[in-house]
């Protein structure tokens, strides 16, 4: 018999009482909800070590990014333009597309990556990134990350977020909440363990 059959047989032999699947509905109903999602998201991001910036009417997203990261030279962007309110704005401050590199290791040394967020979660500052380029390394290897997120795509909690997310054709997605961090040396919090040292979510 294969190990697979052995294991399944052992599970069936040893399983005693079978418990029913619980219904999440009531818990999801009573889960924390924020009346002002935008205000809450701005408040929670610094707690996670990042920042949230709301793009004002008529403001150029490229100017905002350049203002936040004046020293960034090698800038990747996964999109050519971004929807801001009613209109589209071109993303012109980037110097290359992440899939232009020969291999993922060539992305090392990227100062800033501008990527698309899909859903923002107000209870914890997590933003869902659905892989939309072949080199997903760009989400992690860049020194700093700008996540562009439609301000209408904010939800209160993870229950709501999981109803909206998908992993798309690449079959990968990640919630990112603030910069990479560690406290492995004497519990001192240090930003920038392996991923981005600095994260800004721009709510467009």
């Amino acid at each position: 018999m294969s190990s697979r059959e052995d294991i399944l047989e052992s599970i069936r032999r040893n399983t005693r009482m079978r418990y029913e699947k619980p219904d999440y509905a009531q818990l999801e109903e009573e889960a924390v909800k924020y009346p002002d999602l935008l205000a809450r998201f701005k408040e929670v991001m610094p707690q996670m070590g990042g920042r949230a910036v709301v793009l004002q009417k008529g403001e150029d997203v490229n100017k905002v990014i350049k203002g936040l990261y004046p020293n960034a030279v090698r800038i990747a962007a996964t999109m050519k333009e971004v929807r801001c309110g009613e209109g589209m704005q071109p993303v012109t401050c980037a110097t290359f597309h992440p899939d232009d590199v020969r291999c993922s290791g060539d992305l090392d040394g990227t100062d800033l990556a501008i990527i698309q967020g899909r859903v923002g979660v107000c209870e914890n500052g997590a933003v869902w990134i659905q892989q939309d380029v072949e080199q997903r390394a760009v989400y992690f290897i860049a020194e700093a990350l700008v996540i562009l997120l439609d301000r209408h795509n904010l939800v209160s909690n993870m229950h709501e977020a999981y109803r909206q997310i998908d992993t798309g054709e690449y079959g990968y997605g990640v919630f990112i909440s603030g910069p990479s961090k560690t406290a492995d040396i004497e519990q001192a919090l240090v930003l920038g363990a392996h991923g981005a040292r600095d994260v800004t979510v721009i709510l467009v």
């Binding site: 996670m48 993870m158 079959g171 991923g195």
Partner: peptide, 18 residues
Amino acid sequence: GTGQAITTYTSHYRKPRP
């Protein structure tokens, strides 16, 4: 576990990379 609202990365691996 660590008293954070969520870990920085919660990664969902569904398919092999291209």
